[in-house]
């Protein structure tokens, strides 16, 4: 199982780097999906089966489809090719990369400097998660539901355009 963890981890890191650096949006997106799948494997290995499934269903399956959808609607796949030269110059990425490197260094320091007693793997059942969600975190669930509702309404409102009928027969509809 640990082998799976390391393989998935390497895949996740590599595909994420690819996702960040691809100029073609759809390619980047595909790499990102791979990254999420790899992350799902990592979660599965860690015993969080429910979360792994959700990662695949929601992140890789639903949210990313939305991205693809929008990219397709805007048809911007090839458009960024022109900008490739411009943004891949070191001047563009060296600063952010340095910043991220510092952040990573600090986080690594924080992680490695804490005494973390290793524990044996125990699978957290979906049932346990569900019970925890609907007892201890009930309020959180309600708030999340309200937030989703707000998201739906917001997206609907933003996307809504009054339909204009071009044909006189359809004016009444």
């Amino acid at each position: 199982m640990l082998i799976a963890f390391y393989i998935a981890g390497v895949i996740a890191v590599v595909s994420t780097i690819m996702a960040v650096t691809r100029s073609n949006a759809v390619h980047a997106l595909l790499y990102l999906i791979v990254s999420f799948l790899a992350a799902a494997v990592v979660l599965f290995v860690l015993g969080a089966h429910f979360a792994a499934a959700l990662e695949v269903i929601v992140y890789a399956g639903a949210i990313m489809v939305l991205f693809v959808f929008v990219i397709m609607m805007l048809n911007i796949g090839g458009e960024t090719e022109k900008a490739k030269e411009r943004w891949l110059v070191p001047k563009r990425w060296i600063g952010p990369a340095l910043m991220a490197a510092i952040l990573f260094a600090i986080l690594s320091y924080a992680i490695l400097n804490q005494p973390v007693a290793t524990a044996s793997l125990s699978i957290v059942e979906p049932k346990t998660v569900g019970i925890s969600l609907y007892t201890q975190y009930l309020l959180g669930v309600e708030i999340a539901a309200v937030m989703l509702m707000a998201g739906i309404i917001g997206a609907f409102h933003l996307g809504y355009t009054k339909r204009k009928s071009k044909h006189r027969f359809l004016k009444g509809e």
Binding site: L103, I106, L107, A110
Partner: peptide, 16 residues
């Protein structure tokens, strides 16, 4: 975004 990240770094540095 860079500003936020910088703030995060500074905060973490101070905290750690």
């Amino acid at each position: 975004a860079a500003g936020i990240a910088l703030g995060l770094i500074i905060t973490l540095t101070i905290a750690l």
